[in-house]
Simulated scan of single mutants.
Amino acid sequence: MKCYLVPCVAGFIAFNENLDIVDYELFPRRSIISKLLEFEKGLTAEEEKIIKRLLKDYGKISIESVHRWKYGKFKGVILESPNIGGEYLRENLREILKEIGFIKDGEFQEIIYEIHMGMTIKRLEESFREQDKLIIQAVSTLDDLDESIGKFVERIREWYSIYFPELESVKDHEHYVKLITEHPRREDIIKLKKLPRESMGAELEEEDIEIIREFARAIRSLQLLRKSIEGYIESKMGYLAPNLRDVAGTTLGAKLIAHAGSMKKLALLPSSTIQVMGAEKALFRHLRRGSKPPKHGLIYQHPLVRGSNWRVRGKIARVLASKISLAVRKDVFTGEYDPNIKEDLYKRVSIIREKPKKKGKKRR
């Protein structure tokens, strides 16, 4: 016999081979966030308790994890990530949490949001000595949010289009989600947006419309959270790295810090490394196979590089990397804001763009 042990926001839930719940160990309600953070770093008391019980009853446990070092002392633990228990839990999380008494009707979105918000804040507030670590964590959180929001928006567009396919004309994702949150019935949106009165979509029950609206509310809360974290990064960058923010912009500057590991590490890198930072795979291919070397990495996201003709992108990327290197060194070693760095950058880019093209030799 074999069972599946799966971690979740509530604690640990075990399923048998028929995917029936056979055991569970919940975190104390008041310390869920701290327990989840503890779980990321090692074995919690709750996990150890339920593993011992399950090994006694079943002999073999499939645990959804890649952290082999956590379970070395347990014989009979099989690591499978993902396993069928984990997939089943994710697909039916709301119903399972209600079944074990962790939530009541209507609490799911609120509790999940509070936990995720608390986890985000705790990660940012953990005892880091260097302030730039906060920026690194915020950028990572932003990347995770972008990935999740992108998947959820795609899902709700497919789901709601069954009911109201004409709303696909709204291309802005935030506006799309906001419309469903505030006006879930298509008749209201038709009046508001002056869309065709007859919809080709299917008729849905009130229960169907309400669950879509609840999903839209959850996505909307994540979108607002993303804006909040973006504002936080803007504030932190203005305080810690004003020159880098001025030259590279808030988002790109923060990503460069995160990629390097710290502001000090970024300041010690040569500009040639900064230029291709984020394009390591292409660089290794160049070194191993002799393919063309990359001209830019993360700094391609800068409008000066992205918005330039491909013929001069390499030169502009080189100038930008040089100025980024100078800006971050100013921030780290002097702390003085110097607006001349950005001014000189734009002057040099303007010269590169205006330089006449070299005419190639005519073929005879």
Rank of each mutant, 00 (worst) to 15 (best):
S272E: 15
Y232R: 12
E214M: 03
Q223W: 01
V276I: 15
E234G: 05
A254Q: 10
G261H: 04
G253C: 08
A202E: 14
R220Q: 07
Y232C: 09
L204I: 04
K227W: 03
L269R: 12
G278H: 09
A241F: 15
T251A: 05
S262H: 14
A248Q: 14
K281Q: 05
E234S: 14
S235Y: 15
S221A: 10
A202S: 13
A248S: 14
V247G: 08
M200P: 02
L204W: 03
K236E: 11
A202V: 14
A279R: 10
V247C: 13
E280F: 10
L252A: 08
I219T: 02
G261L: 04
G231V: 04
L222H: 04
K255C: 00
E207G: 09
I233R: 09
G278N: 00
I211A: 02
T250S: 14
T250R: 07
L204Q: 03
S228Y: 14
S235T: 15
L266A: 10
L240E: 10
E234A: 05
M277K: 00
I229Y: 14
K255W: 03
Q275P: 01
M277R: 11
P242R: 06
S272Q: 11
I233K: 02
M237V: 13
S221R: 14
R226H: 10
A254D: 12
E214I: 07
A254H: 11
A248N: 13
I219D: 03
K281V: 00
K264R: 15
P270L: 11
